[in-house]
Design a protein around this nucleic acid. Structure first.
Lengths: 146, 146
DNA sequence: ACTGAAATCGCTGAATT
DNA sequence: AATTCAGCGATTTCAGT
C-alpha cells in the first residue's frame, strides 16, 4: 500500500464531488500551488488509486427506469470467470459481483420496463449453468458521493 | 422524457469512458464543432441527464480491501426513508438500495478487514428496527463502463 | 517536493448563417 | 441548432529553491 497522505485524501474527496474541478480550485482548497496539485493527481493515477474519470448519469431520464438485483446460483462446475463473462455480455447488466457462498453471484440490472426485466432475467438463466435465481426490485437508492 | 438523439448518446458514451475528455476530442469523434459539443453537454446537465462528474477510485489501493452486500430485514413499522437515513450515516456504507419484498434493503459495504466488517454489520443491526441480516461477501466484481 | 513563470491548449460566449 | 472567431482561463512543462 503506497503512502497516501491527508492532502491526497483531500484531493480525492474534492475530485469525487466534482471530477472536472480545476487544479487552481483544488490548489486553493488544500493550500498548495497548481503545479504541486497536478503532480499529486498524476501520481495518484500512476499508482492506480485513481483509475479514471467519468460522468454520472441519471438513467431514469434516459428511459431506463427500473433497477434490480438478481441473485444467481450456478451448477457446481461453473467457474467464476465464466459467470462474469456470460453475465457482462448482456447489455442490461450494469455490474456483476461474484459472491462467496450462497448465492454465487449478484447481478445489478437496469431495464426500461418489467417486460424488459423479464427478458434480461431469462437471458441470464440461459447463459452458463444457472440453477436458480432470485430478483430484488429496487424501489430507491442512495450512493455516497463524498 | 426529453429528446436525446444518437449524438447525445455518443457524447455520454465518450464521457463515461473519460469524464475529462476535451470538447475538441469529442467534436472530432462525433463530427461537430467544439462549441456545438459544449452546447449539447451543457444541455444534458440542464436536463439532469448528466448529474455530475467524478473520479473512479480503486478502494483496495487505499486499504479498503473487502466489499460486501448485507440484506436487511426491518420490523413492519419501519419507513423506507428511515432505512436510508440510518444506513447512510455509517461511513462503511457505500450504497443503500431499498427493495420491494424480502429483504427490505440491500446495503453495499466497503471495509478494511473482517473485524471492521463485523463492526459495520453490528452498527447496521443496531440502527433502525433490524430484525434480520444476511451478508454476501464479494469475491470479485465487474462494472460496465461503456 | 513545492513554487512560480511561460507557453500551449482548451473553454466560453457572441456574432453569424 | 451549428459554425467561426476572439478573448480568457486552465493545463503543462521547466528552471529554481
Amino acid at each position: 500500500m503506497p503512502d497516501i497522505d491527508a492532502t491526497d485524501h483531500a484531493l480525492l474527496r474534492l475530485l469525487r464531488s466534482d471530477g472536472r474541478r480545476t487544479y487552481s480550485d483544488m490548489a486553493g482548497e488544500v493550500g498548495l500551488s497548481v503545479a504541486a496539485v497536478k503532480r499529486r493527481v498524476d501520481r495518484l493515477q500512476e499508482l492506480g488509486v485513481i483509475t479514471g474519470f467519468t460522468v454520472q448519469v441519471d438513467h431514469a431520464k434516459l428511459g431506463w427506469t427500473i433497477e434490480a438485483f438478481t441473485e444467481l446460483r450456478y451448477a457446481g462446475t461453473t467457474r467464476v470467470a465464466d459467470i462474469v463473462q456470460s453475465a457482462s455480455a448482456i447489455p442490461e447488466v450494469h455490474a456483476v459481483f461474484t459472491i462467496a457462498g450462497d448465492p454465487d453471484a449478484l447481478i445489478q440490472l437496469r431495464v426500461r420496463d418489467l417486460d424488459h426485466l423479464q427478458q434480461a432475467i431469462d437471458q441470464l438463466r440461459r447463459t452458463g449453468n444457472v440453477v436458480g435465481t432470485k430478483t430484488l426490485m429496487v424501489l430507491g437508492s442512495w450512493t455516497r458521493e463524498s
